[in-house]
Design a protein around this nucleic acid. Sequence first.
DNA 1: TTGACAAGTAACCGCTCGGTAACTATAATG
DNA 2: CATTATAGTTACCGAGCGGTTACTTGTCAA
Lengths: 209, 209
Amino acid sequence: MAGDTKERILETALELFAQNGYLGTSMNDIAGQLGFTKAALYKHYTSKQEILDRIVERMNEMDYARAETYDMPETAPDGFAEAYLHTPVQKIRAYSMAQFDHWTKEPFSSNFRKMLTLEQYRDPKLAQLHHDYLAGGPLEYMTAIFRKLTDSDEAAMQLALEFYGPMYLLYSVYDGTEEKQAVSSLLAAHIDRFIARVESGGRKEGSAT
Amino acid sequence: MAGDTKERILETALELFAQNGYLGTSMNDIAGQLGFTKAALYKHYTSKQEILDRIVERMNEMDYARAETYDMPETAPDGFAEAYLHTPVQKIRAYSMAQFDHWTKEPFSSNFRKMLTLEQYRDPKLAQLHHDYLAGGPLEYMTAIFRKLTDSDEAAMQLALEFYGPMYLLYSVYDGTEEKQAVSSLLAAHIDRFIARVESGGRKEGSAT
DNA sequence: TTGACAAGTAACCGCTCGGTAACTATAATG
DNA sequence: CATTATAGTTACCGAGCGGTTACTTGTCAA
């Protein structure tokens, strides 16, 4: 198959980038892993940099598609918080668990996340992606969601921090342990605790559901 | 001064390792930053690897010394949780804020943390250090502290996750923002909220002060 | 049947890497 | 004053890097 090899190059390269970093992976490494020599790579991609660019491109496409299937909006526009008020809290749980599964179990995304972690200080473009996908981005997203449940921006950000911080930590824990399932359970328990606390605790004036 | 140059090499190398990774930093880069040529480096260190080893060694020494000044024990041995019961909760706050300041403001430690982040998947030894210093390690440490406040190991780990997760996330946020002070405030607010919640909420039977 | 094309190969290019060898200026020591 | 140690230098080494070139081979359509 034609496009098949091109695809396998992309996945293999990302796998190696995630393990050894971009600089730590040579064209020989990628080709060798696939069973041929590096010159063949240049039949499919013009440079090592282009492989990286196509990986980033692919990730953006996957992410866009995924945001469309889920009916939580990709970014948090004006008027979104109202939409959330009509949304059962369980949707946040399902969405967050799906996010976690995606960034840990799905091979391409898991490797992409690890690569972002390794390259976040060296490459400004990847630093931006690391922020948007994994650090400040999700934090801001959750802040927008929690905004209408609280009295102030500060309180919303605190809630987002309490919700997403543990999730972010568990990515690292997940990578470093063999008991993957236990980590997922830990996250589920955290989300349940959090939801229970927010629902019973200080609710704002006119919040239905 | 004799040892002075050797020390400057260490700090400069770590600075570059934190920015560009170990592989992304050449001996020429390190020497150039210091104003001489790479051959001079080999008068002080036998190899690039030895520079990295000395950095790790230095970090371990600094950490040990710091754990001694603070009277929170370095690891959590048997009987430690009882000691915690005699300890004002404010000590956890002070200790955690000091930890955060240390890993962000103190140049050597801040760079060391960034380097661990970049090298955690490539080098197994650094992966272990990343776990011990920044991810699973602190989580287990806090779990041990919270153990005597809760009914079960699971609940203790949940508390630790809720306490340390946001802190871990804020390291990343801190690195990526210009408003460093705001991030510190965010952490302080988080800790205060957490302590208030734990103190008012489900306390276990015989816990004084 | 043949000829264009796709997808490989081996060999090579210029460059940078970590590391070494031989040398030199400086300064403290007997 | 001669000597010795220290901390630099320039010049070089072999290896591996990203990338290129010329060539071969299998497939498939005209």
